[in-house]
Nucleic acid binder design. Structure first.
Lengths: 208, 208
DNA sequence: TGACATAGTGTACATATTTTCACTATATTT
DNA sequence: AAATATAGTGAAAATATGTACACTATGTCA
């Protein structure tokens, strides 16, 4: 299979997944800037000959993928989406991923997870980060880690309370910075019970 | 749904399962001994109206089942994740889902798609909606529709330019309201070329 | 170099498919 | 009895789709 043919096969697969029915020659041609339907036809004829697709005579839009090409894509598709848990609350001293905390799941693209990262979702309470576009009710996507860089948006546990803030560490003086001018930066001293739960890597919001 | 319509819906489902692509009007007619394609058409129109199937204009063999009918058949889709296209730009006069516009895909939970809704992603340009938590570079999830209710956040086409704004229609006077006090509401007059592309149903943001 | 496979254009044509219109028929409801 | 929803016919026009042919271009292989 040539690269061109593979691209076209992939496009057909995507098209069917997206629309529920296969593309016409012209739709394929438009996508690849092939101006003549005959140019498309020859690619499809090649794909048929090699056993990746099949078409029924005497009807239009009849391309369907064979098992041979499904096996080609299935591996990709399986690793394409990952479910991460949405946690209701994160309590101090308890493991973050404890089952009883899980309120639901969120589907994300697998490419967001690099290596062995642990991601989870968390519903945002309060309006302390609205100037960073994180609103009450939003779900933040959090990468589980216990360290942070300056200016990271983090999920922190401060005296038994979970909070979303920006992290700042200047001269070993740690502050949690809200993104809302009605709130003051929160200084963290050694008297506080403080730990970093994770770093916010994404935000997800749904309107009704 | 009448018994006849249910039989036809069932046949379409079977046909797709068997062939991988939907049947034509004549193929449906042959199976049920309906001699005129118009007779078939009216059944399909009824099924569309009742939300069991969807068809795209301007193309043949484009019947696909909605979630509503999937739940009827007790048939679960392979995963509960759905890929929606991320569109680079939406040009006036062109179909929104034209393949050449697709820049990538976004994985969302299938439950977000109700019935025959068409969703797509769109990258946000500009800062006119920051007070609503929609920032430059965010991807908005858009439900394709050409009408809107007051206060909906919409994707609109105004004089060949795509824009995200809140929709307001008071006494037939249409305005597009930014969520940024540095910008003024945009009045829409009959002199403008104006159309609604869709309604924003979600926001997705990734931090590096 | 010549033979060959891949890739694309443009036109014309044949066929498949959907849409539209006018008309009939049968139940059910008001 | 009249109105309404469902179901169907037959023919036509409009559109979408696939096929065929002659031609060009480019890279690879022997």
């Amino acid at each position: 299979m040539t690269e061109r043919q593979e691209d076209i096969l992939k496009f057909i697969n995507d098209f069917i997944n997206r629309n529920g029915f296969p593309p016409s020659y012209r739709e394929i041609g438009n996508h690849f800037n092939i101006k003549s339907t005959f140019g498309v036809k020859r690619h499809l004829d090649a794909l048929i000959k090699k056993g990746f697709i099949q078409m029924s005579d005497k009807s239009n839009r009849s391309i369907s993928l064979t098992d041979k090409s499904y096996s080609l894509f299935d591996r990709v598709r399986e690793t394409n989406a990952t479910e991460i848990p949405i946690l209701g609350r994160v309590a101090a001293g308890y493991p973050v991923f404890a089952e009883e905390n899980i309120e639901g799941t969120l589907v994300i693209d697998s490419s967001l997870i690099r290596g062995s990262e642990k991601l989870f979702g968390l519903k945002v309470r309060g309006d302390s980060m609205i100037e960073d576009g994180i609103f009450e009710g939003d779900t933040v996507i959090v990468k589980s880690q216990n360290k942070a860089m300056n200016n990271d948006i983090i999920i922190a546990m401060l005296d038994n309370d979970t909070t979303v803030k920006r992290y700042r560490n200047t001269n070993s003086k740690i502050e949690l910075i809200p993104a809302n001018k009605n709130y003051q930066p929160i200084p963290v001293s050694s008297k506080n019970d403080f730990s970093i739960i994770g770093k916010v890597v994404g935000v997800y919001r749904l309107y009704n």
